[in-house]
Computed example of a mutant assay.
Amino acid sequence: MSDNILLEELKVEMRIEPEKVSLSIENFIREYTEKLEREGLILGLSGGIDSSVVAVLGQRALSPQKVLALIMPDQDSKKEHLKDAQDLAQELSIPTKLIDLTPYLQEMRIYALSPFNKIPVWGGLKGRVIKESYQFYTRKTGEIPFSASLLGFKDKAFKSYLEKSNAYYRIKHRLRMVLLYLYAELENRLVVGAANKSEYQIGFFVKHGCDDASDIMPLLNLYKTQVRELACYLNIPSRIIQKPPSPDLIPGLTTEEALGISYEKMDLILLALEKGWEITDITKALEIKEDKIVDIQNLMQKSEHLRKIFIPKNE
């Protein structure tokens, strides 16, 4: 089979029937809201595509007043993401709570962990310095910082920097998770996560954070490119669909910059690996170097512990 045919086969399999997928997820949301005896949903709305899709599906599954969105920025968050989240909630007529995480993080002295804390956000200076530091680490070690952070830092270069960076950004997701469950329990709501299959498989999430700890995960069977296809069907505003995905935890880095690969390319690699393709077939079909595929495999292996709880075997 030619490389072009292999690639086309892969792209065809990546496509979804968005109407069918939407109805299935809406039924899933209704089923578990009822099964777990909840009176509504709660989700974190970031202004990104994943949480926006979850918000729309929740609104369609139940009703606007049964969906509560917590919008939880901090001082590092981009104002455009906050506005996109607020505008979408208004379009959907769903209630929101705006909670600024900055005072909580200041109380815990989290911002003091960052070596870039004194650099002003305005004008993009902090973002540029952080991006250059990220690239510097990659050049020096041959590994992206994200990959290095998936396991511990024993005997690793720049150990102190990596430890503080992890603590710095992960606490934000975990604090959001705590707030989601606080209001969920106060109002008898179901906590809905927004993780997608692409990021979950490579470990691009925070263990026990708001995209990991939840009651249901409606998008976990969908690759990021499939979430985009679903977003178009659901009429998510184009500004949300088209802007570069970002965890919005540390200024200066989009998700694709942090990973060193586009979602389109990564998703096709992940799907090919899922189908059991040989690495040589993937490199030819996608016209990509073998080491990039090996990098993705390494991310999947190194992040396995994030998706599991380990217990001792019975003797």
Rank of each mutant, 00 (worst) to 15 (best):
S165C: 05
H305K: 04
I269S: 03
I241T: 10
E185Y: 10
R189N: 08
V56E: 03
E19T: 05
Y233G: 07
S133L: 06
L41C: 15
Y200F: 10
L125E: 14
I171F: 04
L175Q: 00
L88S: 11
K172V: 11
E26L: 08
A258C: 07
S52P: 03
P95F: 00
Q65K: 14
G124S: 15
I94H: 12
L105S: 10
P64R: 13
F28Q: 08
L62K: 06
E80T: 11
A184E: 07
L101F: 09
Q59W: 03
D291V: 13
V227S: 05
I71W: 09
A195T: 10
V294W: 07
V178W: 06
H173E: 13
L222D: 01
K78M: 06
L234S: 06
E163K: 12
Q90A: 15
K197Q: 10
D87Y: 08
Y32K: 15
I71R: 08
D295G: 02
F204Q: 07
I71K: 09
G48R: 04
L259W: 03
L249M: 09
R307Q: 14
D211P: 04
A69N: 06
L162T: 03
Y161M: 07
R170F: 04
Q90S: 15
K313N: 11
P145E: 00
P145L: 01
G58F: 04
L68K: 14
I293A: 04
P251N: 00
V121G: 02
K97E: 11
L36T: 02
K224N: 11
E91S: 13
W277L: 14
Q297C: 12
C232Y: 13
N314P: 01
K156N: 01
K197M: 10
K197L: 12
Y169L: 15
K164Y: 09
D74W: 03
F310N: 05
L220D: 09
S214I: 04
Q86W: 00
D215T: 14
R30K: 14
L10N: 11
A184P: 11
N196C: 12
L253M: 13
E91Y: 08
G152L: 07
T33A: 13
R176M: 13
P312V: 13
R109F: 12
K83V: 03
Q226W: 08
R30L: 15
P120S: 13
F116G: 08
R189F: 00
L70F: 10
I202R: 06
A85N: 11
I261V: 14
I5Q: 02
D248Y: 14
N4F: 10
L43N: 12
V12Q: 15
S165M: 11
E257Y: 09
V294G: 01
P237E: 03
K131F: 09
Q297N: 12
S52Y: 02
T225E: 01
K164L: 10
I99H: 03
V206C: 01
D155R: 13
L249V: 02
V67C: 05
E107D: 00
Y233S: 07
K131D: 00
N27A: 12
E13H: 11
K197I: 04
L180M: 10
A157Q: 05
L98I: 09
L273G: 02
H305L: 11
A148W: 01
P237A: 14
S52H: 09
R189I: 01
T138P: 04
S51V: 00
N314E: 13
L253Q: 07
R109S: 14
M72N: 02
D291N: 15
T255H: 00
E185Q: 14
S198L: 09
I236E: 12
S51Y: 10
S246F: 01
V54T: 05
L249I: 04
S149I: 03
E264M: 03
